[in-house]
């Protein structure tokens, strides 16, 4: 029983580490690229003349929603597995 829980926890941990790395890179990518590639970030795009800086800043919002939903989905699955295990193992 404890062993199975550990396996589930490992799976969650692996997923979390990947998500966190992605989150930090994506989030700090914005201030870093504003600092180091200002010409590139201030170049206009085809959307109404918005610059890449704006697009990148806006992108943080859907990124939050998507990453949050993916995590919730995954964690709900793991919760269900854990629940089934508990019923089977009758803790």
């Amino acid at each position: 029983m404890e062993e199975q829980i550990r396996i589930l926890m490992e799976r969650k941990k692996k997923f979390l580490i990947n998500s966190l790395i992605f989150l930090f890179v994506f989030y700090f990518g914005l201030p870093f690229s504003l600092t180091f590639f200002p010409e590139w970030m201030n170049r206009s795009t085809y959307f109404n003349g918005l610059t890449w800086g704006w697009i990148f800043a806006f992108a943080q919002i859907p990124m939050t929603w998507i990453l949050g939903s993916v995590y919730a989905h995954k964690a709900n699955d793991l919760d269900r597995l854990q629940e089934e295990m508990k019923q089977g193992g009758r803790m």
């Binding site: 979390l16 919002i61 949050g68």
Partner: peptide, 11 residues
């Protein structure tokens, strides 16, 4: 302010 919620949620 917004993205900080992912840190709350994950950790």
């Amino acid at each position: 302010f917004l993205v900080s919620y992912l840190v709350v949620m994950f950790l």
